[in-house]
Amino acid sequence: MKQITVAEVEQRLKEGQQLNIIDVREANEVATGKIPGAVNIPLGLLEFRMHELNKANEYIVVCQAGGRSTLACQYLEQQGFHVINMNGGMLAWTGEME
């Protein structure tokens, strides 16, 4: 599984890169703030909402600390998606939030 650091994601966003970020936290967690542009698909709903994703895109997957995003990445890879796990999750995030 590919990994990316919080600093790398922050740098890419500062450079204006268009990133596809999936936040797999629960809605009440996302309500406290998320990475700008991230789409919230709670881990438990991922199999029911993966039709919203495009296998031609690469997705960065985020959760609170890294455990759920690891599970999400494993599942999505098995389904043929290109994913990268963000190490440290939102606990390590220091960038802007919406």
Rank of each mutant, 00 (worst) to 15 (best):
K2N: 07
K2R: 08
T5E: 01
A7S: 08
E8P: 02
Q11M: 13
K14G: 00
E15K: 15
E15F: 10
N20K: 15
I22P: 01
D23L: 04
V24I: 11
R25N: 02
E26V: 04
A27Y: 13
N28R: 08
N28V: 09
A31M: 10
K34H: 09
A38H: 01
N40T: 07
N40G: 04
I41H: 01
I41R: 03
P42Q: 05
G44S: 06
L45W: 10
E47A: 13
E47H: 13
E47V: 14
E47W: 10
R49P: 01
H51K: 11
H51C: 01
E58R: 08
E58S: 09
E58D: 01
V61C: 03
V62F: 03
Q64R: 13
Q64T: 04
Q64P: 00
A65S: 14
G66C: 05
G66I: 03
G66R: 04
G67W: 08
S69R: 05
T70H: 11
L71T: 12
L76M: 12
L76Q: 01
Q78M: 13
Q79D: 05
Q79L: 09
H82C: 07
N85R: 12
M86V: 07
N87H: 08
N87V: 12
G88M: 11
G89N: 05
M90L: 15
M90G: 03
L91P: 02
A92F: 11
A92Y: 10
A92Q: 14
W93H: 06
T94G: 06
E98F: 13
E98I: 14
